[in-house]
Nucleic acid binder design. Structure first.
Length: 484
RNA sequence: GGCGAGGUAGCCAAGUGGUAAGGCCGGGCUCUGCAAAAGCUCUAUCGCGGGUUCGAUUCCCGCCCUCGCCUCCA
């Protein structure tokens, strides 16, 4: 099987993925700050990281996946206080919500999910090390800062040397808040302030709390060692977060932090950034209320290259809410599901335990070989999807013998496993759930139809529709399902 | 201002130095009493202007436009 290739932000080239130890691919993904529901943009990142992990495993490597939870920062403290909850209760609530959403999206759980609060001693130890090595300094207010000028290669990941930072461009520069030597020095430890309330920890520099960048460095080192295979996150983390992580970790260990940097480009909504003020901020729950499943969202999120910003249309030209991508995803998913069922039945898999078994072993992907190859080629998920449909056109399940059908079925399941796509299951005749009166009307219509009394048949079908049920004729009789 | 990404059919979105995957929508056909569903099928010359080349959407130059980042951010 050919190898998995992926673009690396540091070297700016597509490189082959391989574990340093030759066996287990060890990687770290920056996880969510748990202070509210994650939105679909956050999930684009997590879903594609999940696809990446699946392809690593399907390519014959073992994976060791670490994804952190940021459970202490300005926002978590502020909002927990606002709700009158302890920081722990507050972040646990949102952590659980996050896990629920991940489950709905069919995301594989990371092997380790460390949280910042649980690793304060590790962070303090790292700061002490940095201070002793001259890479960090304590200020009078009890904070500790990283001295950027002490780390010569600072800025390599984001090409800092090739650009100039515009002071205050983000509008949140607040140098006066803390006492640091240089505006670009970043905080490792924040001295306790009144607004932190009871959220502080003891340290050699007094009471306070850890800075955001540090937690990842400390947890990476704890679970993955000085050097690991890959580090990942959204593009917005390239600078300063990942740049700062590199400075912290490499100054401490003296070794390259990660061999490969994997960054995911943002999801845009109606051509712009998602924000609450623009009213284009969507969560899984919001989409569920509008009738869209997590699987449909997952399909949409993988339908564009992770290296390209993706445009999620939520408004039409008149400003009315509309979700063409999700609607399209539903159709596409059903199309694949029908094909999969036809193949399974032909292969004799429908009645076997095989039915819902995932196929994780590469044997012979047959017509779907190109689809999997697309995934291995810099995680080209849209190409993969295209290849799936192309392959479907070349295969006529009815014309295959059992062996060939089984082979193609396994190939399809293998690729779907890589994408993490769960197919919609066809409702088994809603028989029991249909109310008596609806059932009676349907029977009456069937009789009218058989008597070729079309007028009566159509009238009854309309009445059934008015009652909220959709009736479709089939070979045997009819199907009833609730109107969507 | 600096850095980066991008402009491919109504929408979304791959890809390639030799006249462009796929999905949705729309049209047509088949099936059907009708409808729906399903199956089949049709629909682009790749922002604009130059250049290189036998040949460019794909390489180079210029221009126009869009978006993201610039120490909260997936």
């Amino acid at each position: 099987m050919s190898a998995l290739k992926l673009f690396d932000t540091m070297s700016r080239e597509i490189r082959e993925i391989s574990p340093r130890d030759g066996k287990t691919f060890r990687f770290y993904c920056c996880g969510p700050t748990v202070y509210g529901p994650a939105h679909i943009g956050n999930f684009r990142t997590f879903v594609l990281q999940d696809v990446f992990r699946r392809v690593v495993e399907l390519s014959g490597m073992e994976a060791f996946h670490v994804r952190n939870l940021t459970d202490v920062d300005d926002k978590t403290i502020r909002d927990s206080q606002g709700e009158g909850k302890t920081l722990t209760d507050f972040t646990n609530f949102w952590r659980d919500r996050f896990h629920e959403d991940c489950g709905r999206l069919n995301l594989l759980s990371p092997h380790v999910e460390p949280s910042a609060v649980e690793h304060i001693p590790h962070q303090i130890a790292m700061i002490e090390d940095l201070v002793s090595k001259g890479n960090a300094y304590a200020s009078e207010d009890g904070s500790v800062y990283y001295k950027i000028s002490s780390f010569e290669s600072y800025g390599r990941l984001s090409r800092l040397d090739q650009r100039e930072l515009k002071e205050g461009a983000s509008g949140v520069m607040s140098d006066d808040e803390y006492d640091k030597d240089s505006a670009s020095d970043f905080v490792l430890w924040k001295g306790r302030r009144d607004e932190d309330g009871e959220n502080f920890w003891e340290s050699p520099w007094g009471q306070g709390r850890p800075g955001w960048h540090l937690e990842c460095s400390a947890m990476c080192r704890e679970y993955l060692g000085d050097t690991f295979d890959l580090h990942s996150g959204g593009v917005d983390l390239v600078f300063p977060h990942h740049e700062n992580e590199i400075a912290q970790s490499e100054a401490c260990t003296g070794h390259t932090m990660a061999d490969h940097w994997f960054h995911l480009t943002h999801l845009l909504v109606d051509g712009g950034k998602m924000s609450k003020s623009a009213n284009n901020f969507y969560t899984l729950d919001q989409l569920a209320e509008k009738g869209f499943s997590a699987a449909e969202l997952r399909y949409v999120l993988i339908s564009a290259s992770y290296r390209q910003s993706m445009n999620f249309v939520a408004r039409d030209a008149d400003g009315a809410e509309t979700f063409p991508a999700l609607l399209g995803a539903r159709q596409a998913l059903q199309k694949i599901a029908r094909f999969e069922r036809a193949l399974a039945e032909k292969a004799g898999a429908a009645d076997e335990d095989l039915e819902f078994e995932t196929v994780k072993t590469f044997e012979d992907t047959g017509a779907f070989a190109d689809a999997f190859a697309a995934l291995q080629n810099d995680l080209n998920t849209p190409d993969c999807l295209g290849q799936i449909f192309s392959a479907m056109k070349t295969i006529k399940p009815a014309e295959l013998d059992e062996g060939a059908a089984l082979r193609e079925w396994k190939g399809l399941r293998f690729v779907l496993e890589g994408l993490g796509l769960e197919l919609p299951v066809e409702e088994e005749g809603a028989g029991g759930d249909v109310p008596e009166n609806i059932r009676a009307m349907a029977e009456e219509r069937l009789a009218a139809k058989q008597a070729k009394d079309w007028a009566a048949a159509d009238r009854l079908r309309d009445e059934i529709a008015e009652a909220g049920w959709e009736l479709k004729d089939t070979k045997e009789g009819y199907d009833l399902c609730p109107k969507s």
